[in-house]
Design a protein around this nucleic acid. Sequence first.
DNA 1: TCATGTGAAGCTATTCACAGCA
DNA 2: TGCTGTGAATAGCTTCACATGA
Lengths: 213, 213
Amino acid sequence: MRKYKISEIVVKRLPLYLRCLTYLDKMGVPTISSHELGHKLGVKPSQIRKDLAYFGEFGKQGIGYEVSYLRGEIRHILGLTEHIRVAVVGAGKLGQALSEYILLKREDFDIAAIFDRDPQKVGMEVGGVKVSHIDDLRKVVQEEQIQMGIVTVPANAAQKVINFMCDAGIQGILSFAPIAVTVPEGVRFYNVDFTMELQSLAYYLTGQGKGEF
Amino acid sequence: MRKYKISEIVVKRLPLYLRCLTYLDKMGVPTISSHELGHKLGVKPSQIRKDLAYFGEFGKQGIGYEVSYLRGEIRHILGLTEHIRVAVVGAGKLGQALSEYILLKREDFDIAAIFDRDPQKVGMEVGGVKVSHIDDLRKVVQEEQIQMGIVTVPANAAQKVINFMCDAGIQGILSFAPIAVTVPEGVRFYNVDFTMELQSLAYYLTGQGKGEF
DNA sequence: TCATGTGAAGCTATTCACAGCA
DNA sequence: TGCTGTGAATAGCTTCACATGA
């Protein structure tokens, strides 16, 4: 076990490296240097080397990193070696799109259940998974050993739904709801709000950052 | 004009403040202190004060910030006072979900056009907007004075589509495609990849960060 | 020679702590 | 008193530069 904690900012870059390595591996590229990888990703080589060095010595001097090996190591660090069981709460268009994408394209995550409160949607199939009623969340989370939740309900329902999920024992939540929520101690919560991204883009296009670079 | 450049990390927090202020304003809350706002958002009060102070003096000593006034100021800083014209490229489930959400719920952005290359989708209506063919992108971007683009095409089409968009004069792009791409100098590019978020969550749930907090 | 891993330097961001004002 | 705005202090992150090894 490591003695010191690794900063979140480093952990958040690992998936970026992983995404590129997976692509390179599929292309049959055998090795890559921190310089080349950094160039592809817009990241300084020294940063890549330091990030990786927190977790071990994965490279070979004079050569670089063996793509397939490094990919495996990062997957191991991130805990992606066996499928992670995910629940999606909210079976609207966004919930459906995300579920289908994960089911079809991602081997690292399993959509173990989808929930909604609308009786019209309950029973429906999304990518081969039946939509359950939100009232069954606790039961299903326990039966299916769900570890992670994705929230795609409207802003006004988000806090309530997230409370349910935390009560049911889910310890990691990714929310797409455009609202600030609180979660109990011990639950890790990330918010993906694309309108916030659009708004910060706007700063540089039409706002006070216009013309800056 | 400001003499020094404001760091991107500060700009990215403004939409967070804005989102909360909009909510508070709707609730009729007249004023808020940096302490209260920070508590709601999980941000230190001193950080909020410093962030805002880069742009002006918006608060009143002994009172705090006038919610509606501060909201207006941040909207002004971000350049959200008149609708921003956006193109969505990719009319699949995700593109549809995002377009409909923006059309229905966001007053700061206008979906001026939606593009796809699939003849089946071209001509279709999404939230009242007709889907155009990707080949017409340049023409429509110029006619409709589109400033910003959202990319929701699959990974293998993303670089090509993004090249088209940059050629057509779009200067800000938000991509949901899970792949690294390059854009020419002068184009601001953000990538929202929720699988990267899931993977960093995994680090804390099943990976080497398990148990850390 | 080429490229890693790493201590040290340099830089950026956050937090503190308090003067100043309503 | 209560809270902002801000210089100073601290903490954290990135980059440099080079010893080391293949």
